[in-house]
């Protein structure tokens, strides 16, 4: 079931943050070049390139209708591309579709379980459709139900499950055949915060066991938390890519937010801090914002300077740019979504 063996230890450059995997040497779990797809006159994908190294998480981030789901559908053999090519686990998504289906798991936006079957019946059915015998499929189903804390509900029809339970069962169904590459289409859309967190932890667990994950999300915090790398998708193109930190750096470094005891001291504070920043600090009432290029020691340095000039500080914090800032900077519109889509369509 596993794809190529792990990259040799020598390929990992000491001191680098991530293993240096050269995508061209075949260890990329997902490799997409020039992918295009149109529905009638609507161009869903306008040339997408992606590279997901084995054992990492790629987050496709973008608003509704950006083309994220189309990418997932092509990579899981549900849809044929108009142009371009894509390989998953070393197999071509069009030519090797039948073999590829044995190596991927898909969990969807809509929990794809039969609501009139029990949790165990659902998983047993999926296992048998992978070609397992009934007994083996049932054993695997029980194993997954236990892992996903659904064992108590194993023999209840899934229509009695909560939203979070159904999502976990859907994910369990995607894992029946222990796929090396997992596709998650908006895995937490519509879930309550607690179920979301649970699902995030589960996904992190799978990744730590070596599964490669490609997920789509509209949630910036989700992409930030789970992804090794993020590809920002808009209008069927990848408009930016990189680690969450790299993307944030592109919007500018971190910001020091200082709340003063006396708003009147804002001007003194700005002068005291001016040489710490590339751009002049901004004072707005009691709030002073300083863009800093170096994270280390910034707070200590700022406090020292302000103390030296007699400025009273009530609160001081480093704020990293969020992916909201990233999205706004890259696309010129905020990440949320429906209204933008309507305007785009018009």
């Amino acid at each position: 079931m596993s794809i190529d063996s792990d990259p040799p230890a020598a390929a990992v450059t000491p001191g680098s943050q991530r293993p240096a995997i050269d995508p061209s040497d075949g260890t990329a779990a997902v490799s997409v070049t020039g992918l295009e797809k149109s529905y009638g006159s609507v161009r869903a994908l306008a040339g997408v390139d992606l590279e997901v190294p084995q054992g990492t998480v790629m987050g496709l981030l973008g608003p509704n209708g950006a083309g994220k789901t189309t990418i997932i559908r092509i990579l899981t053999t549900l849809l044929k591309p108009d142009a371009g090519s894509a390989r998953v686990a070393g197999l071509d998504v069009v030519r090797d579709a039948a073999r590829l289906r044995e190596r991927i798991g898909l969990a969807g936006q809509y929990a794809a379980v039969d609501e009139n079957l029990t949790g165990l019946e659902n998983l047993t059915m999926v296992g048998r459709l992978y070609g397992e015998r009934r007994a083996a499929a049932k054993r695997r189903g029980e194993e997954l139900l236990e892992r996903f804390e659904l064992l108590e509900a194993a023999n209840r029809p899934t229509k009695t499950y909560s939203g979070g339970m159904r999502r976990r069962l859907d994910l369990a169904a995607a894992l029946v055949a222990r796929p090396p590459v997992l596709f998650l289409d908006e895995p937490t859309t519509g879930l309550d915060p607690r179920s979301r967190l649970q699902l995030w932890e589960t996904i992190e667990g799978l990744v730590s066991e070596g599964t490669t994950v490609l997920l789509t999300t509209q949630y910036l915090d989700e992409a930030d938390r789970l992804s090794t790398e993020i590809a920002v998708i808009d209008h069927g193109r990848v408009i930016a890519g990189g680690t969450p930190d790299e993307l944030k750096d592109r919007v500018g470094g971190e910001r020091l937010e200082i709340r003063l005891e006396h708003p009147a001291q804002g001007e003194i504070a700005v002068q005291a801090l001016a040489t710490m920043a590339d751009d002049p600090p901004l004072a707005d009432g009691e709030l002073v914002t300083v863009g800093v290029h170096r994270r280390g020691g910034a707070i200590v340095e700022a406090v020292r300077r302000l103390d030296g000039t007699g400025v009273g500080v009530e609160d001081i914090a480093l704020r990293r740019p969020t992916l909201d800032d990233v999205f706004l900077a890259l696309t010129g519109h905020a990440a949320e979504t429906a209204e933008d889509d309507l305007q785009d369509a018009a």
């Binding site: 899981t76 289906r101 969807g108 992978y130």
Partner: peptide, 17 residues
């Protein structure tokens, strides 16, 4: 509509089954 056909189509099962 519930996505089950997607699930089935992503499985290595016979296409007519």
């Amino acid at each position: 509509h519930k996505g089950l056909i997607d699930r089935f189509r992503s499985l290595p099962m016979a296409r007519a089954a």
